[in-house]
């Protein structure tokens, strides 16, 4: 059942406890909270090592009201698969009776870089898991180092002069595995996101959701702007919201008039050094134009 209103989403019980140690305004917390709300009680969460994991499971407390497992940095997909496969076997053998949804919440590093092999294995095997990558575009937990998902031009502690390559196309990789379902998400379009999570889970998987996650510290912005920035990523065409199902890719949020990428970049300290470099801005704009062409977004509003 799609979420027709914000109220219908709000009324779902919460399975993410306050008192966690994520930064004020953290986008990962918003994602974890919405995902657990949608996934519901009969869900098991797996996360690789990263900000979300360390900040929500500081012993002796946990923010997860559903069963939760963290094993290591590079194996969340394998870990989630193991649980799902075990559940399947135990149910078939009548050793237990009730099934559970398996949802991974992985950082971009744990997904696009060190965990890519394990993810590829799980997707290729057709494991019935939902893998959600919360993409804050760097290794935040270890202090903002670049990852394969860091966008062109962004400052990180290991790309002090600005990232020189474009971010990896994670969605392209997921779709190349012929997953059951794949989608992009942004918290600024929370009903769209919630519906995608519900669809991903109900289709059984393997499904993959790539969710942009502004990070106040790493992206250097005022914490109150997390949703604004998530919205601008979509409005500028840098983060088209679409889904892939049965081989067809479909835009879920139309952007008839795009904003220039500078509207998004200028709010973030990580792009400060390129804001007065027109040739750098042009590169990012042309990257956005490329995405717009590919996914059918409108022209940049003058």
């Amino acid at each position: 059942m799609p979420f027709k209103s914000i109220k219908s989403l709000e009324e779902r019980p919460d399975f993410f406890s306050p008192g966690h140690g994520l930064c004020p305004g953290c986008g990962a917390a918003q994602i974890a909270r919405i995902v657990t709300k949608v996934a519901g009680k009969d869900t098991i969460i797996v996360t690789p090592t990263g900000c979300l994991e360390v900040s929500t499971t500081t012993y002796p407390a946990t923010s997860w009201k559903v069963p939760y497992l963290h094993v290591a940095f590079e194996n969340a997909a394998a870990a989630a698969s193991g649980i799902k496969v075990a559940y399947d076997a135990l149910i078939r053998k009548k050793k237990i009776s009730k099934d559970a949804n398996l949802v991974v919440l992985g950082g971009d590093g744990g997904t696009a870089d060190i965990g890519l092999q394990s993810l590829s294995g799980a997707l290729e095997r057709g494991e019935r898991i939902t893998y959600i990558c919360y993409d804050n575009e760097a290794y935040m937990n270890t202090g903002i180092q670049r990852s394969g998902a860091t966008p062109y031009g962004a400052w990180t502690t290991t790309s002090p002069a600005g990232q020189k390559t474009l971010k990896k196309d994670l969605m392209g990789m997921a779709m190349a595995h012929r997953v059951k379902y794949a989608a992009t998400a942004s918290i600024a379009y929370v009903r769209d996101a919630a519906n995608k999570v519900e669809k991903a889970i109900s289709l059984g998987g393997p499904s993959f959701i790539h969710w942009i996650q502004p990070c106040t510290v790493g992206w250097r912005y005022d914490p109150k702007l997390t949703v604004k920035i998530s919205k601008l990523a979509v409005k500028t065409g840098l983060w088209p919201l679409y889904e892939y199902y049965e081989g067809v890719t479909k835009l879920t949020v139309e952007v008839p008039k795009r904003l220039p990428v500078s509207e998004y970049l200028k709010l973030q300290g990580r792009f400060r050094q390129i804001m007065n470099k027109p040739e750098e801005l042009a590169k990012i704009q042309s990257y956005a134009d490329g995405l717009a062409g590919k996914f059918g977004l409108g022209p940049v509003a003058q």
Partner: peptide, 12 residues
């Protein structure tokens, strides 16, 4: 790991 009796494994 059982939704009827949630627990966290692999904490910090």
């Amino acid at each position: 790991l059982d939704p009827e009796n949630p627990l966290t494994m692999g904490a910090f």
